[in-house]
Design a protein around this nucleic acid. Structure first.
Lengths: 196, 196
DNA sequence: TAATTTAATATACACGCCGTATGTATGGTA
DNA sequence: TACCATACATACGGCGTGTATATTAAATTA
């Protein structure tokens, strides 16, 4: 088979892996591309050929992490069913995901600053889209109030992410997590037509 | 009177003003300290003497904008009274404030990435504190459910900020703003003990 | 299989920016 | 008036990015 494509894919994977580590530990700005590439036995030549520039590498990293997050959230939702409980479960899953330092630093802090508004990212918007679809169905079912589905989906995600940041930055995350989840659930019930 | 302190204060103000402009337009990373200081007839010497480093300048800028935001939100709340309506009004005020590109870029994007978690900033935490106080009073009054006041305050602020980012990034902000406000209000009613 | 072409990666260079160390000049003070 | 402190300017070193050129290894074709 094609040898070149294979090694190229391997090199891309190696660079992304090293970048996840470096970006998470030192932050995007403080990560040297020379060091990063040298760590995996390459030079900046490979990097600029594969990703265009430093931002391109960050975008690739963000996309990877983001898709992992979406998969995780989707699994959590599936476990809780496709109705109201599923929507709640997805939000809670996001909160828990953002406890990961990699997610915090790369996706929540540096990502927006360097790449711009997350809702424009292809990966995030897919996740948002799925949330929006559930909301739309629940509205049609009469479970939720008649509000703009996209607005509701965005604010739910936003609240969840913010809760996650709070939990992550706190001194005792395991104590704060349940409070955050409780507050999130309470807020979410505001969308219900007939409150629980 | 003391001439030196006066000119120093003037220079600080000039630098902060120029930084607000540069950071808002080009972003923090792309703003050159040489250019910035030259714009106001100074050199980096003045900057590093007054603010320590580039981050220090950003911190000063963020603090200034942040305090302006807090003042604005407080005023909006006062106008709507000190109860539940005031809490809502404060959230809506935040959403509207974040339509300002300066606020978006500096406070919401670059600020967290460079300075770290916003809840640690002295200015923001003061605003959060005031929200928390209202929530606590409303809980004591029996207006709100028995939930953690800090959690509720944080998620409210988080949802509002996220709504603002969405509105700001949209093609037709004036159309999206009412949807965001409606969704925010709906979410917030989830905190009420007896839903409206 | 040998020559040729393609392209993935390495190397080398130019430029800009930050932070610091040192110099200078002006305002306060005795 | 002479001295000192300090706010600011100047000069320097180092690092990091992005790009242009070179090299090497794989794929293709005859």
């Amino acid at each position: 088979m094609n040898q070149r494509l294979k090694t190229m894919a391997e090199n891309r994977a190696k660079l992304i892996l090293a970048a996840r580590k470096a970006f998470a530990e030192k932050g995007y700005a403080a990560s040297s591309m020379d060091d990063l590439t040298a760590d995996v036995g390459l030079t900046r030549g490979a990097l600029y050929h594969n990703f265009g520039d430093k931002r391109g590498l960050l975008a690739a990293v963000v996309e990877q992490i983001d898709s992992e997050m979406a998969a995780h959230a989707k699994k959590a939702r599936a476990k809780a069913g496709d109705g109201w409980q599923g929507l709640l479960a997805e939000g809670v899953a996001y909160i828990e995901l953002a406890l990961d330092p990699e997610v915090q630093r790369i996706v929540l802090l540096d990502g927006p600053a360097v790449l711009g508004d997350p809702s424009q990212w292809p990966s995030q918007s897919s996740c948002l889209e799925s949330t929006k679809l559930i909301v739309e169905r629940l509205i049609a079912e009469g479970t939720l109030k008649q509000i703009d589905a996209e607005a509701a989906a965005r604010l739910l995600n936003g609240a969840a992410l913010n809760a996650a940041l709070w939990v992550a930055a706190s001194a005792a995350p395991q104590d704060v997590l349940p409070k955050a989840v409780a507050a999130f659930s309470a807020l979410a019930t505001g969308l219900l037509k007939a409150p629980a």
